[in-house]
Design a protein around this nucleic acid. Structure first.
Lengths: 212, 212
DNA sequence: TTAGGAGGCGCGATTATTCACATTGCCCCT
DNA sequence: AGGGGCAATGTGAATAATCGCGCCTCCTAA
């Protein structure tokens, strides 16, 4: 029902255009503040017509989430498996930064969910972050890579770096205001990448001897 | 009009109770998704009675913002002036962490504003962050304190550390889910403080020689 | 000819806001 | 002491806008 069996490479179907519009508006306003009228307006149809493609508002929201989660998980599974060198950690972080830079909507949706709840919030959190703790970053201990392991704060550190990446996106207007630069320009991406890498390298090289 | 002439130490005025309720709900749902009925319900009055204390929804929102900004700016002005030692930077960060931990609502409100706009968003950003760039962290260059200054990323670094602190609060449900710990417990506060300090110390000690 | 998809209409709920009104406590005048 | 006025603060009813959503009709492409 959502995807016709025919190939649809050039012209996006109405369902996809609804998904695109809904994704943007859900990400901006959150679930409850989003009106289906706004979504329909952006697509160029009337709001009752949405019900020809999605059962109701919540189903539309679910479809938006599903598509986003698929898009984001794809490039990360490639990085799973193999030895956990520090270079792998850098590539993993850089991939995440580039993904959120390319499409900020997932971070925004997750931030809305964390603030206000809404349907499927816990499921969203689980599907986005459990993999990080099970198959990837959790195993970083060993062969010299510690990520502040000696302080017993490792999962906290992983979440901190993720928050760093996502808050850059959810706080983009702030960066625009205070730094006077388009936060989604190529130049800003490079700056953000440089900062994250510098921080990560500082943490890797740091030996927490001096207790302040 | 807001404060009766009598001393009001023990019993909060209705206006204050409205402000308390509105602050919580605005912080949770954002401006547009907040209904005055919900606010009135929490106070224990009917929504038309709100208009005896505030002109309209936007004025109530402004009052909430004003009170929050005052509460947060007070402890920080004490840290202004004087030599910019690294110890001062640590105290400044620790103060901010403790403030947001004690009342997460400002961070949540700011996050909603950054995501969805709403009234006075730009003014909010300015009043919260301009001081950091003018009187405090911007002058950190000198006397050995560099904060990754050699990479030309100093303002970015300042905002990154702030995002780190605020996203901990706006993402609190995530921490609760994934770490199985109340993110606002004393124990969690200590963990968060330790992590932030460790990161900051790593950055201070780091000399960006090796280019990855 | 037939079925999918778009539009029109409208119901019921919720929202911010206004208004007329009741109640209360306080000041001041007698 | 008593009472008239008055400001402050509460209420229910009413209004206009908006929302999600269901029903039904019409158009059009295969």
């Amino acid at each position: 029902m959502e995807n016709s069996a025919t190939s649809t490479p050039p012209v996006p179907s109405t369902s996809d255009r609804i998904l695109d519009a809904a994704e943007d508006i859900f990400a901006e306003k959150g679930y409850s503040a989003t009106s289906l009228g706004d979504v329909a307006d952006r697509v160029g149809i009337r709001s009752p017509s949405l019900y020809n493609h999605f059962k109701n508002k919540e189903a539309l929201y679910e479809a938006v989430l599903e598509r986003l989660l698929e898009d984001f998980s794809a490039p990360l599974v490639e990085l799973e498996g193999g030895p956990l060198t520090s270079e792998r950690v850098f590539r993993w972080l850089e991939t995440i930064v580039r993904q959120h830079h390319g499409n900020p909507n997932l971070a925004r949706l997750l931030q809305h969910a964390a603030l206000s709840g809404g349907p499927h919030t816990n499921e969203l959190i689980d599907r986005l972050f459990r993999p990080m703790f099970e198959s990837g970053a959790d195993k970083i201990v060993g062969e010299g890579i510690t990520l502040i392991e000696n302080t017993g704060l490792q999962p906290w550190a992983v979440m901190a770096f993720n928050n760093l990446v996502m808050s850059y996106v959810t706080m983009a207007p702030m960066y625009r205001d205070l730094l006077g630069q388009d936060p989604f320009s190529e130049e800003a991406l490079e700056n953000q990448l440089k900062l994250i890498k510098t921080l990560l390298r500082a943490v890797f090289e740091y030996k927490g001897d001096t207790p302040l």
